[in-house]
Simulated assay, not measured.
Amino acid sequence: MFIKKYRKARDKNASILVVGLDSDVERIKGFDSVLEFNEHIVKETADLVCGYKINIAFYEKLGWKGYKELEETIELIKNETDLPIILDAKRGDIGNTARAYAEAYFDRLGVDSVTVNPYMGRDSIIPFLEKGHAFILLLTSNKSIGDVELHVYPKVLELARELEKRYPSKVGIVVGATREEYVSEISKRSGDLSWLIPGIGAQGGNPEILRELKGKDVVVNVSRAIIFADNVRKTAEEFRELLARQYFD
């Protein structure tokens, strides 16, 4: 179960940092493959993080070879660590299609959590919760949230709370760190939902929002700022300490 693995890693490594393996082949230098690059990142950071988040887009764009490297990366993390794996896929489709996605990700790939899009409602989310943990997109860190998300996020939060009662410890929400003006309100209404927070790092989100989330199950994703840093380990250590000062102290 995702939450159990996350809490164990959080306590062991004193970390709420998740490293995002947004391993864009066009930015990788000095490595023969995406897998070799990912292996380097994992070896440098495994004792500093509470998990890894893999953005499926950077693997799918490479076709079958990319999907093979996705499978091999997941296998690498599972063989070398006890850390949970979040697959950032943002899926959201009708029930039978959602079930096929859930089977692919939880049964075939063996990940611990998947990001899902709630636009089509509970039928598109429940198949993932029946297999494992899901982070539901609530308020993301991209610029155009005013088009849709800002208008519907209270309803999505209500739905997430409802689903959490039926699937305890299996439902989370995605809230960007760039949405700090909404964090306090969402925190008060989020109950036992777990949080996935992107946007600290390259997107400039404020880590001080973590003070509002003490006591909750929180993972903070940092991708590009760490994996493409000149010194991966040093940068990961700096982010772990930055987040820990806000969350644990």
Results as ranks from 00 to 15, higher is better:
I186F: 00
I197C: 09
L138F: 04
A177M: 12
I200M: 08
L150N: 14
A202T: 14
E181N: 08
V152M: 15
E158I: 02
Y167F: 15
L193T: 00
H151P: 02
R166G: 06
T178C: 06
H151E: 14
A177I: 10
G205P: 04
L129G: 03
L157Q: 06
Y153L: 06
E158K: 11
G201Y: 03
D147V: 10
L129H: 07
S144T: 11
G205S: 08
S194I: 07
E208Q: 08
E164L: 01
D192H: 04
S141R: 11
T140G: 05
H151T: 12
G146V: 09
Q203Y: 14
D192C: 10
K143M: 12
S190M: 11
P127M: 12
G172P: 01
L139F: 07
P154W: 13
G199P: 09
I125N: 04
P168Y: 12
K131N: 09
W195V: 03
K143Q: 14
L138I: 07
L129S: 05
T178W: 03
W195F: 15
S194W: 06
K170H: 04
S169I: 01
Q203V: 15
E158G: 00
G176P: 11
K143T: 13
R166E: 15
V183F: 09
G176I: 02
S141Y: 06
I173R: 00
A160Q: 14
E158N: 08
